[in-house]
């Protein structure tokens, strides 16, 4: 220990302190700070690049998944559209058919009704013509019959006969 203290050289200590502290400060300014900063920037750049790549990959995957989804959706939509169209066609045909049927039956009904009413009118006409005819016939007959007394009586008699029969 004593030898150590004796060996201690103040001059060497002084120079070592001066030079070393100077070296630390100089290196700090001109070496360590730029080096460590550059390394740090590089490391963060690498980190960023890696995360960016991972993000890009993720995006790609997402995009692919989206594409797949879109494709699937489009396919499903096409299916649905086709189905719908088919259904529409069927319903249209169906409805056209029923409509046509209805129309036809309506027409038939109309026609029948028209026929009926025509028939009725015709019958009425016929009736009135027949009545007129029968009246005019009866007139002429009655006129002829009334020209002769016996005939008149005969007529009344037959008429009465008829009346009782009815």
């Amino acid at each position: 220990m004593e030898k150590l203290i004796e060996q201690f050289s103040l001059g060497l200590f002084f120079w070592q302190l001066l030079l070393f502290v100077g070296l630390v400060l100089l290196l700090k300014k001109f070496a360590w700070k730029p080096i460590l900063d550059a390394v740090e920037t590089r490391e963060s750049d690498i980190k960023d690049a890696i995360s960016a790549a991972a993000d890009a990959k993720k995006d790609m995957e997402n995009l692919q998944a989206d594409n797949q989804k879109l494709l699937k959706e489009a396919r499903a939509e096409r299916e649905a559209m086709l189905k719908e169209a088919r259904e529409l066609k069927n319903t249209m045909i169906e409805s056209a058919k029923t409509e046509a049927k209805e129309e036809a039956s309506k027409l038939v009904a109309h026609a029948q009704a028209a026929i009926e009413s025509e028939k009725k009118a015709a019958i009425a006409d016929l009736k009135s013509v027949v009545a007129e005819l029968s009246i005019s016939i009866a007139e002429t007959v009655v006129r002829e019959e009334l020209s002769d007394k016996s005939k008149q009586e005969k007529l009344v008699e037959s008429m009465l006969k008829d009346a009782t029969l009815n």
């Binding site: 001059g11 001109f30 070496a31 080096i35």
Partner: peptide, 26 residues
């Protein structure tokens, strides 16, 4: 005694060397 002894001289050389090498590296 503040002489530039052999050790002080070596410390100077090493300091210069380190400064030269690392500032160039920077």
């Amino acid at each position: 005694d503040l002489s530039i002894t052999k050790n002080v001289f070596t410390i100077m050389i090493v300091s210069l060397l380190l400064f030269f090498v690392f500032s160039r590296m920077a």
